[in-house]
Design a binder for these strands. Structure first.
Lengths: 207, 207
DNA sequence: GTCTATAAACCGATAGAC
DNA sequence: GTCTATCGGTTTATAGAC
């Protein structure tokens, strides 16, 4: 019985899950090559040899972290997009939930952004098919429902870019003068993005 | 005569510049710890020993890459912001130049994003003071000039987020169905962002 | 299943020939 | 100024005791 080459053990092993859960913030902060197997083992309270009992190598462990993170938030978007409310209300709800998620899961957002920068073809395929593709499609379909005359795919990119950027630069923003804590508040940020998307900068400031 | 601790040799040495120019895409793609001094030497057509003649260590070389990239584009924004044209026209010009720069300097944009994710205090300070702080300030001042009733700093974050995201996910976007090449065109993207910022999604589609 | 010990390769950095 | 050779340390990964 040989270990699988890429995918970690499929059964829900609580030790493997603990390893991946503790490795997630390490990979998000320092990148794939910036984290050693020793550091991962220490974060999980184990030694290095034990890691290789659950994962065939470092790459498989990393892919396991990616897939586990994807699965944990995949169904979260579904209920929001499928709600039977008017499209503008769905947009507002989606933005709030998306901002909340980005604020609470900075590690995951950072991991995804890192993967986009790296551009590894195999892992890009995983992201495009498993998670991001679905969110992107639901997003532009909602925007097209709001206004069929715009390029909804471009608008979806703009929406996603605004949300993730606000929370990606949180650490940097605090070094700028005149910083206010409310710039990190998901409710405040999502309402701001909603106003820009719907009315632009010249529209009425509050509805 | 000892070598400086952090800053590389100040004189404009063409060999040092070649080393940094070839190292930039490597750092942008794989991060600081993902690139070895051997790889940097090979990219410049040298051997590892020669690198230490021009840079005291790997950290100094990396900081040199950051600073050289900063300097190369720092003055590019000045002329745009200081133009004596109406604010909306300046916004349109700024967006076009910013998108062009992001499209032509994907490595630099990736490097900056990577630094934001990493959160190293020393390098964050460098970014906040030397380059990004100035661009951020000019951006929100322009937006405040357009509409004094909005939160211009938040709007500046949204603007920057839209621009960089469009070009950061270029590699990923091509894996999505119904991709069009014009989504990578700076003129097309900047005009799209201009329309969203000024009119929103419900406004008139073309001016 | 978890550990210790270790192999083989790679890392950043230095010394010294030319 | 560029090279080769090498040091000491760390890396991923394996072998084997318990």
């Amino acid at each position: 019985m040989t270990k699988p080459a890429v995918i970690p053990h499929p059964q829900d092993n609580e030790v493997a899950e603990r390893i991946m859960a503790n490795a997630l913030p390490l990979f998000a902060d320092h990148g794939y090559s910036g984290v050693s197997m020793r550091a991962i083992a220490a974060a999980a309270g184990l030694t290095i040899g034990t890691l290789y009992h659950y994962f065939s190598n470092k790459e498989a462990l990393y892919l396991g972290v990616l897939q586990a993170s994807y699965a944990s938030c995949a169904e979260q978007w579904q209920t929001i997009f499928d709600a039977p409310t008017p499209p503008l209300e769905r947009l507002r709800d989606y933005l709030l939930q998306y901002c909340k998620f980005a604020a609470e899961n900075k590690e995951f957002v950072g991991l995804v952004k890192r993967e986009q920068l790296e551009g590894n073809p195999q892992r890009m395929e995983l992201m495009a098919n498993v998670l991001l593709g679905e969110q992107f499609e639901k997003t532009w379909q909602l925007l097209e429902e709001i206004n069929p005359d715009i390029d909804a795919r471009m608008a979806a990119n703009s929406l996603i870019g605004m949300v993730v950027h606000h929370f990606e630069i949180a650490a940097l923003r605090q070094r700028f003068p005149q910083h206010r804590d409310e710039y990190d508040d998901p409710a405040r940020v999502s309402e701001h993005i909603y106003q820009i998307l719907v009315h632009g900068l010249l529209g009425k400031p509050a509805e």
